[in-house]
């Protein structure tokens, strides 16, 4: 009896702490959102707290008026979907192979492969050489220029690989004894057990691809840029000089940024509730028991 009371006291305090944490995180975001909807003058004068003042859709409406917006939105969706599905496939396949190690069930030269990926995790040649490669293989202005260069994420491989390694070996072994090959084990045994890690990696990929803007800027023609690149260009601060000082005053760097922040966070707000079930306790074990 005493223990239950203790539990509920802990629960209560814990819940309160969590609510406070949530508040500490959501208030600044609400502030930023209000800023994005407020007039430039109110923002500059620090009058906006958690509610828009002098409602102004300027930051959004300038972007919304442009027909390019819809096109860019579609390109972003296309890019994100392709990146997530292909990226998950390619990284999880590599992770499956590496999770087998260099032993009897694994591949020869395991350590070379690991070295190969670790080096790729840390070293990169920078923007100019990557640009040269992408354009030389004919990807300029192709949606694949936005997808292929970042498709293999070594961090994700390591994450998935370690998840695979932690799964109970019994099922896998049973499948091998039944005569299944690696492809079958990967697809039928490992993948269904790995939904939590796939959801995590998928979420990271969606957020990353949705918000990445530089490759759109350098690899795509203006009519084919993704949403992130379009917004960055469409709502950047103007030059301020005598001719357009008053016009420039209608822009506010913080408001402009705020609109971008909201759109940047949109996918996670939309997707996360659906991914929740993959983060629910016990699904892995449930799957094993089947």
């Amino acid at each position: 009896m005493r223990t239950t009371a203790k539990f509920s006291a802990f629960q209560l305090i814990n819940n309160l702490v969590m609510i406070m944490l949530a508040a500490v995180c959501i208030l600044p975001f609400l502030h930023v959102l209000s800023v994005s909807l407020s007039s430039s003058a109110a923002v500059s004068a620090n009058q906006v707290t958690f509610w828009p003042i002098g409602l102004n859709l300027g930051s959004y409406s300038k972007a919304l008026e442009d027909t390019q917006l819809l096109r860019s939105l579609w390109i972003s969706v296309e890019r994100t979907l392709l990146s997530v599905t292909l990226g998950l496939l390619v990284t999880s396949m590599a992770a499956y192979v590496l999770s087998k190690g260099g032993g009897r069930n694994g591949i020869a030269g395991y350590k070379w492969f690991v070295g190969f990926f670790i080096v790729a995790l840390l070293f990169n040649g920078g923007m100019i050489p990557t640009y040269l490669v992408v354009t030389k293989i004919g990807l300029y202005n192709s949606i694949w220029a936005l997808i292929l260069p970042t498709m293999v994420n070594v961090f994700n491989i390591i994450l998935i690989m370690n998840f695979f390694k932690a799964l109970p070996k019994e099922l896998e072994e049973a499948a091998f004894i039944d005569g299944a090959g690696h492809w079958k084990v990967y697809l039928r045994v490992m993948m269904p057990l790995s939904l939590p890690v796939m959801a995590t990696v998928g979420l990271f990929t969606v957020v990353g691809e949705w918000n990445e803007w530089l490759s759109g800027q350098i690899y795509m023609k203006p009519e084919n840029v993704p949403l992130s690149t379009f917004l960055k260009a469409a709502i950047s601060m103007p030059n301020i000089d005598i001719k357009n000082a008053e016009e420039a005053a209608k822009f506010n760097a913080v408001s402009l940024n705020s609109a971008q922040i909201f759109i940047g966070a949109l996918p996670i707000l939309l997707i996360y509730p659906f991914l929740q079930k993959f983060f629910a306790k016990g699904i892995v074990i449930g799957a094993v028991k089947e």
Partner: peptide
Amino acid sequence: FFMGYPGSLLQAS
């Protein structure tokens, strides 16, 4: 241009 930017912002409020 100071009254144009940021002066006009100040005058707005």
